[in-house]
Design a binder for these strands. Structure first.
Length: 167
DNA sequence: ATCGTCATATGAA
DNA sequence: TTCATATGACGAT
């Protein structure tokens, strides 16, 4: 991550405890639940910006886990990404709950129809899964494709949204 | 249906 | 420049 983190805060859900990472510009990362919780990045007081954004993050994450689209997003700091990656992530934000696209369709959407593998790479580099819904991208064959949080998470998220995948 | 192979864009080392 | 990819298309089984 390019920008410096100012706080890492837990997001407690029925699916486990996610970890939200904030930079001075907004939400910069979201980790899937781990066996043991990460320690807080900074000890002492949480910066005002982070504590203002965090409740929004928590609501947004819970909304997605409930199959609904968040009513509000925290500011997203995607500055760690290249221009191409940010373009793809932007495109992911347009995919509504329950909808899916293929890697190839995304490539076409950014006028780079042959950059299909690069789209896969951009999805894999997505720092904020769930809110930037890379789980809604499937292979053109209808198969599941990969997922940074593990394929079982991808399936679970899609199932929550009422999407059934082949295989 | 599955498998191997090739084409091709992007990014990291 | 070389290597690895969360792909896709195609042809051979």
């Amino acid at each position: 991550m390019k920008t410096l983190l100012i706080a890492s805060l837990p997001v407690e859900t029925d699916e486990g405890i996610f970890q939200a990472h904030y930079s001075e510009h907004g939400l910069a990362g979201l980790d899937f639940p781990r066996m043991k919780q990460l320690r807080r990045a900074a000890n002492g007081a949480v910066p005002a910006a982070a504590s203002r954004w965090h409740p929004i993050t928590v609501r947004a994450v819970k909304a997605v886990l409930a199959g609904k689209s968040p009513d509000e997003f925290p500011p997203l700091d995607v500055s760690c990404g290249t221009e191409f990656q940010q373009r793809i992530w932007e495109e992911l934000l347009h995919i509504h709950t329950g909808e899916t696209r293929s890697y190839g369709e995304l490539a076409k959407a950014v006028r780079r129809p042959r950059a299909v593998r690069a789209v896969g790479g951009a999805c894999g580099a997505n720092p904020i899964p769930l809110l930037i819904p890379c789980h809604r991208v499937l292979a053109a064959s209808g198969r599941i494709g990969g997922f940074s949080g593990g394929p079982e998470w991808k399936r679970r998220l899609l199932k929550i949204e009422g999407v059934t995948v082949a295989g």
